[in-house]
């Protein structure tokens, strides 16, 4: 097994991967860098502080805050609210969905898959190599991006342990991977990029809507439990440290949908037009 397709996919996408890393690193660094001045400004102006607290108490912001309640004025709470709770999973979800949709659905639509799929490679190996490229690319972006947060932390002495930041990035990366897996599986099933992207984004926003509904309306708490957000980022992982469900629900879900997509892909015709 030479993993030719796996290396090809990573080589083909390295510029996009680097761009994502730079973007998120910069965002993380700036967040950490501006944290002291933001905190000082809020604490020095009671009126502003009260208004801000009142705003965050609005149920709409609950998904950004998490189940453990308002925690904006600790470094962990601040980073969680500004990145790890919603923005990170959705931003990386976009990367994963676009990549996942292109890997099989896009290539089939562009007809470049025909020659690859008719080489001395089984369909399942082809799918597995592409899935492995998705896993590595998304997790690499997510984990490497934590360098930005760590650097910012170091500069302003935020006192958030690097291991916590890396763990949080892993949680976010796995969750994004789950969305990418849905898009890739959809591409494997339908052989088109457009529908695969649509299914990926549709799934992401449905998950976010369920999570938000569960957080906002008490009687719909159970609905929130149907969302990956609930398990992965429902609680501040920078504060809790390792909790199995934060990692393994997303990971298991990703593996499951990839298996389904891969099995269908091995048993269907490649599109010709």
């Amino acid at each position: 097994m030479k993993w030719v397709v796996f290396y090809h996919e990573l080589k083909h996408r390295w510029t996009s991967v680097i761009a994502w890393i730079i973007g998120i690193c910069l965002y993380g660094f700036l967040l950490a860098y501006f944290w002291p001045s933001l905190k000082d400004q809020l604490f020095s102006n009671k009126q502003l502080y009260d208004a801000f607290i009142k705003m965050l108490e609005n149920p709409v912001y609950k998904p950004f805050i998490g189940r453990s309640g308002l925690d904006f004025f600790t470094p962990e709470g601040f980073l969680f609210t500004e990145y790890y709770s919603v923005i990170g999973p959705i931003a990386l979800g976009f990367l994963a969905i676009n990549m996942g949709a292109e890997l099989v659905g896009g290539e089939e639509e562009w007809k470049t898959l025909e020659l690859v799929a008719t080489s001395a490679l089984s369909r399942i190996q082809l799918f597995a190599e592409k899935a492995a490229a998705l896993v590595v690319a998304v997790l690499f972006v997510s984990l490497t991006s934590s360098l930005g947060f760590i650097a910012g932390n170091a500069v302003v002495d935020m006192e958030v342990a690097a291991t916590k930041v890396v763990y949080g990035s892993l949680v976010v990366g796995l969750m994004a991977l789950a969305f990418g897996a849905v898009a890739m599986a959809a591409g494997g099933i339908c052989g088109r990029r457009g529908p695969a992207v649509g299914v990926g984004y549709g799934f992401l926003f449905l998950q976010f809507a369920l999570y938000t509904l569960g957080m906002v309306a008490e009687k719909f708490n159970w609905v929130g439990k149907l969302s990956l957000f609930y398990y992965a980022v429902g609680d501040n992982m920078l504060r809790t440290g390792y909790v199995a469900e934060q990692l393994w629900v997303s990971a298991f879900f990703a593996v499951l949908v990839l298996c389904i997509g891969g099995l269908v892909f091995t048993r269907r015709d490649l599109k010709s037009q």
């Binding site: 470049t112 025909e114 008719t118 001395a120 010709s272």
Partner: peptide, 14 residues
């Protein structure tokens, strides 16, 4: 398929 060389009708390369 390792013994086969194939040119598809709708050739599309990277």
């Amino acid at each position: 398929r390792s013994k086969i060389g194939y040119v598809p009708g709708e050739l599309s390369l990277y």
